[in-house]
Design a protein around this nucleic acid. Sequence first.
DNA 1: ATGAAAGCGCTAACAA
DNA 2: TTGTTAGCGCTTTCAT
Lengths: 347, 347
Amino acid sequence: MGPSMRDVAERAGVSPRTVSNVVNDAPYVAAATRARVEQAMRELGFRPNAAARSLRRGRSGLVALVVPEVDSPYFSALAAELSEVAEQRGWTLLVEQTHGDPQRERRLLDGVRAQLVDGVVFSPWGLGADELRDRQDPAPLVLLGEQGDARVADHVVVDNVAAAEEATAHLVARGRRRVAALGARSAYGTQTAALRLEGWARALTAAGLPRDPALELPVASLHRAAGAEAVRALLAARTPVDALFCSTDELALGALRALHEGGVRVPEDVALVGFDDIEDGRYSIPTLTTVAPDLPAIARAAADCLEQRLAAGRGDGPGGAPGSAPPRAVVVPHRLVIRESSAGLRA
Amino acid sequence: MGPSMRDVAERAGVSPRTVSNVVNDAPYVAAATRARVEQAMRELGFRPNAAARSLRRGRSGLVALVVPEVDSPYFSALAAELSEVAEQRGWTLLVEQTHGDPQRERRLLDGVRAQLVDGVVFSPWGLGADELRDRQDPAPLVLLGEQGDARVADHVVVDNVAAAEEATAHLVARGRRRVAALGARSAYGTQTAALRLEGWARALTAAGLPRDPALELPVASLHRAAGAEAVRALLAARTPVDALFCSTDELALGALRALHEGGVRVPEDVALVGFDDIEDGRYSIPTLTTVAPDLPAIARAAADCLEQRLAAGRGDGPGGAPGSAPPRAVVVPHRLVIRESSAGLRA
DNA sequence: ATGAAAGCGCTAACAA
DNA sequence: TTGTTAGCGCTTTCAT
C-alpha cells in the first residue's frame, strides 16, 4: 500500500505529526527538520493517502459535474471551463453522464459516490423540480438551467426567453416573416426548450406576426441528426419558411445540412440562428449566427455557489449548515453573435 | 457528517458488522435482520462513507482519464465511451485536462490525487517515453497513442502509419497527384503526427509520386483555426495542390473553411481526407472522408488493461504485484469512411 | 448468523 | 517547535 507517514517519520527520526506538518506546509517547522523529512519522503517515494485524508478532514476536494452527454459540444465546452475553474480552486473534477435518463439522474443526484464528492454541479434533463427537491445527499448542489419557479437549489442560468426573443427579432429585422422554431418541443431539456419557444413567440407577437403551429418543429433529440430530420420533414411538407430559429447549434447544423441537400440556400432562401455558440458553428459553411452564453461566467458562478455553501457548511460563515441561506439564482450574460447564416440583403 | 454504520446498528439493535454485511449484501444475513437494518438505514438516511471504505479496502473505484483537452470532439467522444465502460464496471471516472502542458502532465501522472485513483488512462502530448517511465505513482497506467518502441506501460493504439497510408492511397486512387499533408508537424502530439506523416509518405512512394517538402504543412495546434491558417498560407503561396491529407478532422474542417473562402471547390479542385471521424465531419458541407478509429474498442481495451493490472496487483492472479507482466500493446482496428470530400470523377 | 475489536493513514487537540 | 494520542467510518479476522 506504499509507505505511510509513520514510515517517513521513523526514517526521519521525527513524529508523524511533524511529517504531517511538512506535507501540509504548516508553520512552525524548523528548516533542518523539514529538509530531513523531505529527504525521507523522497527516498521512500511517499505519497499521502487521499482516502485517509478525506476521512479525517471530512472533505475530499472532489466535485462532480453531472451532464446529459459529455460528448456534446456544449457540455464538453462546459466541462472544460469547469475543469479549469476547479483546477484553480484546488478541486478535482469528476464527470458523469446521464443521457437524460431519469433513473440515472436520480442515482447520481443521491450521491455520485455517496459522500465522496464535496459538491455537485448538475444539468438535469429527465428530473423535475419535485424530484430534485427530495434528494438524500447532503453535499451542496448547483443546478444548471431553470427549474421553473421552484427554488430547489442554487442555480445558474442564462435568460433563455430574452435570448431567444433577441435572436428571433434579429431574423425579423432582416425582413424574415415566416420564422420556424426548430426544437420547439423535445423529449428532453425540461424547461429550457419551452422557454426558448416562448422567446420566439414573443418576438413574433412584438413584430405583429401570426403564430403558426406549423412553424413549431418538434425534435426527437437535440443532436444534428434530429435537426436534419425535422427540416427534411418541413421541406417535404412544403411549408413556406424563410428563417429558422434553432434552439441549439447542433440542431442548426443538422438543419443546415438538410437545407443544403434540399437545394435551399442559406441565408438567401432561409436564414438560420442557433443557440450555444459551439466551435463548429464558427467554421461551418455558412458560419452560424448564434446566442453565445458566457460559459466562463457559468463555470465561475457554479463554483462560487459551491464554495459559499461549503464555507457555510463548515461553520466558517454565519448561519451554519441547517436552515442555511435560501437558494440563489444567478443569471449569466449572453450575446447574439451575428454570422453568415443570417446575413441578409436588408440590414 | 451524517449517520454512520454504528448509528444504524444501534437503531436496528445489531452490530456494525451486520450493517456492513447488509450494505455489501454478503450472504448469511437473516431476512428479518436485513429488513430491520434496511429500515433503520432508510429512517436515518444512511449513506456509506466512500472515504472510509476506500481507506479500509485500499481501493477507491475511481479511474482517471487524463487528456489534453476535454472539449475537443475526439477526446470528448473518447471520454463518453470510457465513461460508459467505467459505469459498466462499477468505476467512477475522473477527467483531467493538461492542454499538453508537460508540467501539468507530469503532475497528473504522479498521482492525479495521490493514491486516490485505482488506475489512470493517459493520452500524453507533452511527455516523452523517458519521462513516462520514471513516474512515482504505483497505480496502473494505460497510455493512449504510441510511445515509440519503448514499452513504458500498457498502451492502446491504432495503426497510424497504415491508416494514413490507406487514406492517402485513396486520394491517389481518385487520380490526385499533388497530395499535401496538413498537420505534418505540430507542437504537440508526440509520435502520432510523425507516424501519420510517414503513412502519407509511404503512399506517395508506393504510387511513384515525388515527396515535395512544400507539401508538408506544419500547424501551430490541432484546432480548426490552425488548419484554416495553414491552408490560407498554402493558397497565398500558390502551391499547386489537388488533395489534402489532414492528420485530424478538426484540421480538415478548418481547411475546408479556408478553401471555401479561397473559392476552391471541394472535392472538385481539392479532395480532402481527415482522421478521427468526429461527429462534425458527418454533417459538414461537404461531408468529410476520414479514418475512423474504433473508439468503443479503444475504451474497452484500456479498461481491460487496467482491470488485469488491478487483479494482478490484488494478488488474485498469478505473478503478483512486483515484476508483473510486461507492458502490453493493443492495436485497435480502424476503417476508412469515404464521404463527399473525396468523391471524385474517377472511381 | 451475529458480535467484539483491531486497524487502514491521516489530522488535530492537548502536552511538553 | 515537536511528540503523544484519539478517532474519522468502514471492513474483516476471530470468536461465538
